[in-house]
Design a protein around this nucleic acid. Sequence first.
DNA 1: ATTAGGG
DNA 2: CCCTAAT
Length: 578
Amino acid sequence: MGTVVGTVEDCREMFDVSVQTMITSFPSTNQIGNPVAYKLVRVAGDGRLVPATDEEILEVNETDMHSVSDACKSLGYLPAEGSPSLFSQLEETSEVINLGLLRSDNVEPSTDQVNSQPEYSEDERLVMVHASHMLSTPPDSNIQCCNENNMFDEDQAHHEPLPFSSDVQNGCDVNQSNTVEPSSPKESAFPAAAQKPDFSLVRGEICLDNLPIKALQETFRATFGRETTVKDKTWLKRRITMGLTKSLDVPTTNLTIKDNKLVGNQDKSSDVADVVSKGDDVTATNLKDAPSSSAEDFSCEERAAKRVRKPTRRYIEELSETDEKQINDKSVFPSRDQRLSEKSEVRSMSVSSGKRVTVTRVVPLGGSEVEVPYVSHVRRSRPRENIMALMDCHTSCLEAKATAGESNLLNSEVVSPGSVLKSASGPIQKEGSHNNSEENILTGVDEDMETDHVDSSGNSSDDYNNTGAPMMQGVGLRRKHHRAWTLSEVTKLVEGVSKYGAGKWSEIKKLSFSSYPHRTSVDLKDKWRNLLRASFAQSPSNSMGSLKKHGSMHIPVEIILQVRELAEKQSLVPPSQR
DNA sequence: ATTAGGG
DNA sequence: CCCTAAT
C-alpha cells in the first residue's frame, strides 16, 4: 500500500477515500459474500468516489463470485502445509481465506507457490490483491503485476476487465490536479511513480518489502487515517494488510454469525472493530502483542464461523449396507474439499450442525481418515442383528429337524447347528444345494420343486449366507437376505392361504413352509400382501401379468387370479370364521 | 408368540 | 425386508 500511496499520488487520495468510503458508507448489512461490491467504486467527474451502481456490481459479481468461492475452496488447505512463517497456521488460514474472498479472478495459487516464494508473504499478496481490486486497476496493470510475481498466471487468462477501469483511470488523472490529502509526504518518497499510475501503483504495492519504513508508515496512515510511530516493518505491513483485509472482510464474511460476533466481540476482537472503526489504538501501544493476539482472535472467529461442518444428508441407519457403503465411500460426510466447497453454507448451518456433527471421531480408512458421527456407527437399536442370522439359521435348523424324517441325528446337536448340519448331513446338504439352485433361479420359471422338497433341512447357515445376505460381519450389518420368492413358494403360499386362510401365517408357515426355513410367517404375510396388491394392480389389463417391468418375478396370471379369488373369499369371510 | 400395518 | 404396535 505504501507504494500505492507513495507512487501514485493522485490515486493515493482515491485509495484513502475508498477505504473510508467502504467502511462507512457501505454498511455491514451489505449483501453476503459480496466482496466485490465494496471494491467497486467509480470516480465521478469531480474526482470523488462513487459507489458502483447495483448493475455494475452485479455485473462484476456474476463473473467474480464463482471464482471467488473456488479460490476459497482451493485455498482452504494451504494452511495445512504450514509454512513456517510469522503467523500461526490458523492465522494463515484466515488470511488465506480472506485472500480467496478478495480475489476476483479464477486464480488458484498453489500451496507450493506460497511456500516456495518466501519473498512474497501473505501480506504482500493480500495487499496486491487489495490494490488491484480496490483501485479497480486496469487489467493491463494487473497483468503486469502477475508477470512480475509470476503468481497469478491464470489471472491474465481469466481476468475480465473491470467495467469501470477506464473510469478509474480517468478519475486518477482528474485527481492529479486536486490533491485531497496534501499532508502526505509521499511525493518525496516516490517521485517517479506519478508517471505511470496504474502499473507502478500495483507494482509498488507488491513490493512492500522494499519500501522504507517511512513509506509503510505513510501507507498505514493512509489506510487507517492516523499516524503511527511503529517502526517495525513487518508489523506495519501486517497491520496494513489486515486493515484492508478486515475492512473488506467485515462486509464480506458478514453473515448472521458474523454480525453476532461483531456485536458481541467488539471489545475482545480489537481486530475487526478497531481496524474498521476506530483505526488502531493498539498500534502505538503494543507492538508485539497486537499482531499476534489480534491475529489469533481473528482466526478464532473465522474458524468459529467457517470451520463448522455442514451436516451432510441425514445418516440413514436404515440399511446396514448403505452404512457400510457410505463409510467406505467416505461419503458419510463430505470430504474436506467438499466441505470447503460448500463453505458458503457452512456458516449458516453451523448451528444445526453443531450438535450432531460436533461429536465425531476420526476413522482411518484406506489411508485417509474420515470423520464419522459417533452415533450411527453402532447398531442403532438392539444388538441382536448378529445373532439374528444365527438365530434364523438355528430356528430353521430346528424346524428342519422337526419336520425332517431323520431329524434324530441332528437333534442331538443343538449346540452348533451350523457346523453340525454342514458336516453331519451328507444327503441333506444335497438337498440344500438343490434348494439353492431353485432359489437362484429366482425368476422361478416354474418348479414343482416343492414336492420333492420333501424336507430339505439342507438350509445350512452356509446356504443362507451364500444365497442371501452378506454375512453379518462385525458391527451392525443387518437386513436379512433378499430372497426373491420363487414361483413354487408363491404357489405354496397361495395354496396355504386357500387351505388355512389368510392370516393363519403361522399355520401356513408350519404346514406349508416347513421346508423353507427362511420364510417366516411374517414373510408369508408380507408376500401375501404383495400378491394381493399385484393382483389388484393387474386387474385392469390381464396382459399386464407378464408385462411387469422388471425385477420381481412375473406372476403367472393363474396365480394372480387365484389370489384375487382368495382375496375375495377372505374379505367376505370374517377372520373369526377361519 | 402372532398378526397387522407402516416404512 | 424390517420394525412395531396391538392382540
